[in-house]
Design a binder for these strands. Structure first.
Lengths: 213, 213
DNA sequence: TCCGTTTGTCACTGTATGGTGACATAAATC
DNA sequence: GATTTATGTCACCATACAGTGACAAACGGA
């Protein structure tokens, strides 16, 4: 375990002492732990064990778990930019409906491929501690900015409430992705194979086209 | 605390010994605890504390936490029947769209008013233990039966995938209710006052009418 | 009345957690 | 080279948890 060739090995294995490096190792360990196990059993001891260092360092370098979670949030600030193409995925976005459809499907795929983000969203709806609230604020701010940017001058149709509608649509996508992660099915619909998810994608399109024709 | 007039007081306070009564007290304590605090800190000690008895009785009468959770699931089996009117809320359900709209709005209200069910759904998407799986199966079975019953001979329109669409719609409602519970807002939309929820209800209608005209 | 069973309580083990103070050692500064 | 600081480790505290064996008291039947 504490071999010199071990990735996560700290100075105990003879490596040089480097605050930044170990702080980064702790942050990485925390992110991975959260992505794999969720927010349960997510604590100082587990993170320190995984990072291969003493938990004391978590208190010293991050001021405890709160600070560490904040650091994860900072890492996550660029989540949207990193995995959503700037132009909305491809050209030819003529209508508001085109835009929302493309965004939702992109978001669904990105979320499906990101265990950490899935776990964080579950955490968000599981409790309302200041910790997780700060975590979610960073993400939703960045998302809102990105949407504004990619929307350009496109305007939603009159006579509808695009904010409420989009909230429901995003909620639908998030919930079905999370449910699929946990149970491989939801409301009688299988959520496992690529085909299953294609079916969901088609339904999302239908839903969007129904309200933004 | 252990006064004779205390509701949850057990035989320590002089009450007669009664297995059924204390088992019921334990079950009640567990349900309340789950409804108030969620599945975190939900364990033998906490339940026994709240029920005012020794945790040993939980092992004896329920075989441990697993059995206790199963018992909660049994209690929950009739959830749908108990709070959803048999005829779909009122007459005049002419189309499949009428039906889905009414069902979704009823479901949303019922869910909003039921802390226990909210916590259980969060639990369902948080982990995939056999415990919580059995818990959710009971509920979804009863829901499916009820839907079949209330649907009667009404048929969904051709050319769409009602299962996938309904899964998304149910997911949307569940997610927005859960998010509202946790954070009082979601995707930039306030979720606090009756007016806020009315706005969401309108959007749900729009969404349904878009796919089931 | 006596005796076995049921119901409830207590005390204990082992394990995990969050958190802190004391210490050793490497690195940097003088 | 000597001293001060940064970095990392360790041992320990109080607390909480799940689970178990032993015991006390109430109950019920003979």
């Amino acid at each position: 375990m504490n071999d010199v060739t071990e990735d996560a090995a700290g100075p105990a294995a003879g490596l040089p002492r480097d605050r930044n490096a170990t702080a980064a190792r702790i942050l990485k360990a925390a992110s991975e732990l959260l992505a794999e196990n969720g927010f349960q059993n997510f604590g100082v001891n587990a993170v320190a064990r995984r990072a291969g260092c003493d938990k004391q360092l978590i208190y010293r370098y991050f001021g405890g778990m709160d600070g560490l979670v904040d650091a994860i949030g900072v890492q996550l600030a660029g989540w949207v930019e990193e995995r959503m193409p700037e132009n909305g995925g491809s050209g030819f976005l003529l209508t508001y409906g085109d835009l929302v459809e493309r965004l939702l499907l992109l978001f669904m795929e990105a979320l499906r491929d990101d265990p950490l983000m899935k776990k964080i969203i579950v955490w968000e709806i599981s409790e309302n501690s200041p910790q997780v609230r700060r975590l979610s604020e960073a993400r939703s701010k960045s998302l809102a900015l990105w949407i504004d940017r990619v929307r350009g001058r496109m305007q939603p149709p009159k006579g509808v409430d695009p904010f409420a509608l989009n909230a429901l649509l995003i909620g639908a996508v998030q919930h079905i992705v999370l449910a699929g992660e946990a149970a491989k099915r939801f409301a009688g619909v299988e959520l496992e194979s690529a085909k299953d998810w294609d079916r969901i994608a088609q339904a999302v399109k239908r839903l969007v086209r129904g309200v933004y024709p």
